[in-house]
Nucleic acid binder design. Structure first.
Length: 311
RNA sequence: CGCGGAGUGGAGCAGUCUGGAAGCUCGUCGGGCUCAUAACCCGAAGGUCAGAGGUUCAAAUCCUCUCUCCGCAA
């Protein structure tokens, strides 16, 4: 089939490469406009664009694909289907209806759960045992289209959003190939989503990482993993921002400590912080302006005393 | 030219303002104590103080430039 690929970040790349190396033909690629990024604010092209340039695929980077002139351009591309994975823009009905086979989306959750922008991160934050990817026939709603195929992925106890991202990313290629195969044969079996079961996974931002020590230790531990590597869970030590990268739920040393109190310092393993229920052994941290490091290394150079309170 | 922090033995830091013998906490190695130890005691190795240039009798420290890392912002 002739495919229009639509995607932007690293997450989209393995699927794009799979399609390029398949029997299908990627005739065009849509990705977000190049933007100033990172320290120094240098203009950077998107990961998807880099791959396209190498592969010689025409790249389209409209700022707003909804605009009528952009819709016309899209319609004039001779394609059978569009494959969308983490593109970053809402597609209007005219676009969705343009290709004969419509637009198929690869979403990083088991729909109808975790519709929205940050599905796998929220799956980790909420302590789910498993998640996965779903292909769906897109409609105008936010991830509300009919479901086509799914792949289930287990979430390990030490899973971070980063490791899960990599697993899901790699699973996308196979699933879309199967979906395309069924589509060509006319054997797709679209299943309506049960809206009553739907949950929403809103985009994350910096503020979602502020640790509330009054919450149960397990909840905080899930938050730490779900926000790793971005935007990261953090707290404040002596007025300085401190990211927490790794922690482990342990028993509370003493019930009298208010949540957020450092109740035990172990130079070898880290330090224990009292939480709303149980406590957390902090094992890897990063103070502002510093590299991330093992808690034991951090304790070598930082005079951390028991009784101090994190905010 | 977006704002800011940082680069000092293997790790994490102090020392830089007020130039004048390279320190701290750990780790490593050797020895001792011990039924034993991740504990304790004694000893040792390991550094062109990111790099280049400049000022000075003298630079980790002051001046100029470069490289690298990190936080914010996007």
């Amino acid at each position: 089939m002739k495919i229009i690929f639509m995607g932007t970040p690293d997450f989209s790349v393995p699927t794009l490469k799979t399609l390029i190396n398949s029997d299908h033909e990627v005739v065009a690629c849509y990705t977000q406009p190049d933007k100033p990024k990172g320290r120094g604010k240098k203009i950077q092209m998107t990961p998807v664009k880099e791959v396209c340039l190498e592969a010689g695929i025409p790249v389209y980077q409209p700022k707003r694909i909804r605009n009528t002139d952009q819709v016309e351009i899209f319609k004039n591309i001779d394609a059978d289907i569009a494959v969308v994975i983490a593109y970053g823009q809402i597609l209007p009905k005219e676009i969705l209806d343009a290709p004969p086979f419509g637009c198929i989306n690869i979403h990083a959750s088991l729909l109808p759960k975790y519709r929205g922008a940050a599905p796998y991160q929220w799956a980790v934050i909420n302590g789910e045992q498993s998640t996965g990817i779903t292909t769906m026939q897109m409609d105008v709603g936010m991830d509300t289209g009919d479901m086509l195929l799914k792949t289930i992925i287990n979430i390990e106890d030490d899973e971070t959003a980063g490791t899960l991202h990599d697993k899901l990313m790699l699973a996308g290629g196979d699933l879309i190939l199967k979906t395309l195969e069924l589509a060509e044969e006319g054997n797709l079996n679209p299943i309506k989503q049960d809206d009553d079961q739907a949950t929403y996974a809103p985009m994350l931002d910096k503020t979602s990482g502020k640790i509330n020590w009054h919450k149960p230790a397990k909840e905080i531990e899930c938050l730490i993993r779900g926000l790793n590597p971005w935007p990261s869970a953090f707290t404040f030590l002596d007025g300085q921002l401190m990211k927490v990268w790794k922690a482990q739920v342990v028993d509370r040393v003493n019930e009298d400590f208010t949540p957020g109190t450092i109740c035990l310092v172990n130079p070898k393993e880290g330090f224990v912080v009292s939480c709303g229920r149980e406590a957390l052994l902090i094992k890897e941290v990063q103070l502002q302006g510093k590299k991330r490091m093992e808690a034991s290394a951090f304790l070598n150079g930082y005079q951390l005393t028991e009784g101090r309170i994190l905010e």
